[in-house]
Design a protein around this nucleic acid. Structure first.
Lengths: 235, 235
DNA sequence: AACCCGGGCGACCATCGGACGCTGGTGCC
DNA sequence: GGCACCAGCGTCCGATGGTCGCCCGGGTT
């Protein structure tokens, strides 16, 4: 039980640290500085309660390398994404961003299938891309689709849906600068925050009003960035 | 692990049995017979896979009677509900159905509070009555509200919202007959199934179109009853 | 061939929606 | 007072949404 408390404290600290880091990386694009204020995140967590000094044990993850008599087929990892311009095919063992965005459309199709099946069986019918949808996709032959991957880039797809122009320019810019996918992925947050501001800071509404986006959960980090910007300038 | 399989099998069987029982009890009102067919539920579960004979161990529930140095205040159980006509106050140590329905309205208020708080904090905002709402209600002084209670009667409240006339008549009828709350609670399903049929069997749509109901999850049992009726006569 | 960079996605976690039956309150005799 | 009925709600459970960093693919030297 004491052990459990420590685990939680460690997790919470780590979350805070990560967000701070990413905010540093994000400064360059926005021009108006920002987000070191993310230390504020502490406020979001009303737990307080002192302590939090200890930096607990490393959790051990991953399976012990395919071990013993495996039954399930071992899928090779997908090729990494690279920043490509619209229409540009990826060179080498890489995938381009058009393909990434297509994956989101595919998930939309899989969701529709799951919805039809659920309705037919009189079961409750998801309105968003859920675990069930990812499971269905995998079983139906799209083994290259998985939850963490899709989650990692939702906001990139959101920008693509809400403002293709800006999205395309950003891709072009980051490609020319030779930035990696991680940098582009981070950069996608800022135009979205601007869009949210123009929409009275209602990012959920932005998602819900768009046919393609409606089926995706608003990423936590995007929501937090919007909140922090709202608090900083304007309200 | 073998133990786990047995637990699951036992649970599943139990679920089936319960639904069958309730269907028997439900026949009386509808006039067109029904629902023994609930044995069909087996079809809903595509697991099949044989076995299912063993009727596993009793799970032990409940805390060991307030035991040792308790810290949390012990709340006395709420008075049971009795079937009352609209406007009729409950006699003795009982609560009436007007009060029951008022509890649902109160939950709606608590949901609104939770939504405002979430929006203010830039966190994701529930559109339904979630665990968080029950927690907020409890902490805010409505200790008499709890999840299982509200869940037990959602469909009764649904009938009240969607067709007060029918709901009121049912209350009057069951009161005069001297039926207990359980019987009335069961009886509430059938007018709802009829309403669903008139709405092309779309019970979710029925809930979603009603301002008061929209915030409540459609009860599994109601959804299943609709499905079974749809399969039996008509489609 | 050897190395290092970076990101794919397996696996974990808190919490959720959902369910059920044990306790114990209640009315009756 | 004693008893039998029955329903309130504590407590459990599988699955969900969300996350993080290990491991290894891939380009470069």
């Amino acid at each position: 039980m004491e052990q459990q408390r420590m685990d939680l404290a460690a997790r919470s600290n780590e979350k805070k640290r990560r967000l701070e880091e990413s905010s540093d990386g994000l400064l360059l694009k926005d021009g108006n500085g920002s987000l070191e204020a993310l230390g504020l995140l502490g406020l979001t967590d009303p737990d307080s309660d002192s302590e939090g000094k200890k930096v607990a044990k490393r959790r051990q993850r991953k399976r012990r390398s395919k071990e013993v008599g495996e039954d399930g087929e071992e899928r090779p990892r997908e090729h990494p994404f690279i920043v490509t311009e619209p229409g540009e095919p990826a060179k080498g063992k890489k995938n381009g961003l058009d393909y990434l965005f297509d994956l989101y459309e595919q998930c939309g199709k899989f969701l529709e299938e799951v919805q039809h099946i659920a309705k037919e069986k009189g079961e409750k019918c998801p309105s968003k891309v859920t675990n069930e949808v990812f499971r269905h996709a995998k079983l139906t032959g799209a083994g290259y689709i998985n939850k963490p991957k899709m989650r990692d880039y939702v906001h990139c797809y959101a920008l693509h849906c809400l403002d293709v122009e800006t999205s395309n320019n950003l891709r072009k810019e980051y490609k020319e600068r030779g930035e990696n996918v991680g940098a582009w992925c981070q950069a996608c947050y800022f135009p979205l925050v601007k869009l949210a501001r123009q929409n009275e800071w209602d990012i959920d509404d932005l998602f819900n009003r768009n046919d393609k986006l409606r089926i995706w959960y608003v990423p936590t980090k995007l929501r937090q960035l919007c909140h922090i910007e709202r608090m900083k300038h304007g309200e």
